[in-house]
Write a protein that binds this DNA or RNA. Structure first.
Lengths: 228, 228
DNA sequence: GGCTGGTATATGGTATACCAGAGAGAATTC
DNA sequence: GAATTCTCTCTGGTATACCATATACCAGCC
């Protein structure tokens, strides 16, 4: 190591208080099981600012951002409430997810490299039938990882950004038996088929497979998941 | 615009200053031709708050929201800048638009009423060949109206919200010869075909037609529109 | 004369005080 | 005792003062 040269990265890059409050709040909200029983859905600006050790101003800006993202709803002189999405809103999100990932898969066939596509195998193979028997939470995460990977192959940053926003909400109901065992097995078969289409550079087929796959999930949630 | 029309706001004062500042700024930004020559792209918080007659606090919140939407970029101790999207960003937006409107058309086949679909004819027929010769700006607006109508038929609020956000950006480059005469004629033919598919309740075909139609626009912009 | 380092200022970030309206519970009326 | 009104408090909205730093400009040293 060249000790004769000063470290080029003293940086520090101290984030703004707003950004830090935003991250902290977002992860706190997404971690908690807002669909379970009687969790407190109300927040208080002054209380939060005190607990974060910052003033209300940057905290308010963070809350305003979360409000726009739909994680929280700020009501004048009433309070700040963590929002539970309705079932139909979840349906809409999955529909948008299906449309965008389908397009991403289609595009990936022309812009992704062979290595990138090949890398998808790991995301599926690591999760054989034994693993399926593990906690569904793990499978759910691996499942979302796979889908995010496909989206990433499209090199379309906007699609990635939008779907990331959606996954935050969809993940919140993952524990509600969306992915039970049978679905997991079927899901893995679907995933392998999708990879095949990508490897064959068949954009139309890849798009259709992805769309159908996700729309089946949508129908499943519609039928078996009970929210509210 | 009809200035003699009654204000749609029954009360007017109930909106927060933030909301009003947001609306005012957003319309001001979207109206200006930010891709033209040497427009001033820099904003100043204090100057704006003075001109709006409000304090910096609600103005800053409005700006933060515009920042998150991507219309503006707030840089600490540097300034606030109206952002010009890059060409590749516009490409991504049109791609997302294609994916979502395609899905919307497909869904519309099952959830839209006959009357709702029939109403689409007006949006196309009112714009015959004569009208095509009018200012392209008008056509562009009518064009977007048609697409928004299809999206509305899907009854998917999320798709409407996302695409509304995209149209704001796409409209900003509408004057840059996206829709020249030939394309307009072809476009109208496409639109009629789309309506046929919807009337036949052929979701798959409607989706594909819409997708192809918009992706052709994408290719056109890719080839002929020069940004930056 | 040109580079270096200090300094003024412009600008977004943050803290804080105050405002106004919604709600709950006390006070009042019948 | 029940319905109504009043008041008090709690909460988000707004105004304002101050803070920290990026930038430009200026002075001074080589």
């Amino acid at each position: 190591m060249s000790a004769n040269r000063l470290s080029v990265e003293p940086i520090g890059e101290s984030q703004s208080l707003k950004a830090r409050a935003y991250k902290a709040l977002k992860s706190a909200i997404t971690e908690m099981n807002i669909y379970d029983s009687k969790v407190e859905l109300r927040l208080d600006e002054r209380d939060l600012s005190a607990r974060f050790g910052i003033s209300r101003t940057p905290l308010r800006e963070a809350l305003a951002q979360l409000d726009q993202e739909g994680l929280v709803r700020v009501v004048a002189r009433r309070g700040i409430f963590i929002v539970r999405r309705t079932k139909s809103e979840i349906m809409e999100m999955i529909t948008v997810w299906a449309a965008l990932e389908s397009m991403a898969a289609s595009q990936a066939c022309t812009v992704a490299s062979d290595q990138e596509i090949a890398a998808l195998h790991e995301l599926v193979d690591d999760f054989g039938q034994d693993a399926v028997a593990r906690r569904m939470g793990e499978y759910s995460d691996a499942n979302i990882t796979f889908h995010q990977a496909i989206i990433g192959l499209s090199k379309n940053q906007l699609i990635s950004d939008i779907t990331d926003g959606l996954f935050v909400h969809v993940r919140a109901i993952r524990n509600r038996a969306i992915f039970e065992n049978d679905r997991a097995k079927r899901s893995i078969a679907d995933h392998k088929e999708i990879i095949e289409a990508l490897e064959a550079r068949d954009g139309e087929r890849a798009g259709k497979l992805v769309c159908d796959h996700t729309m089946r999930l949508r129908d499943h949630v519609e039928r078996y998941v009970d929210i509210e």
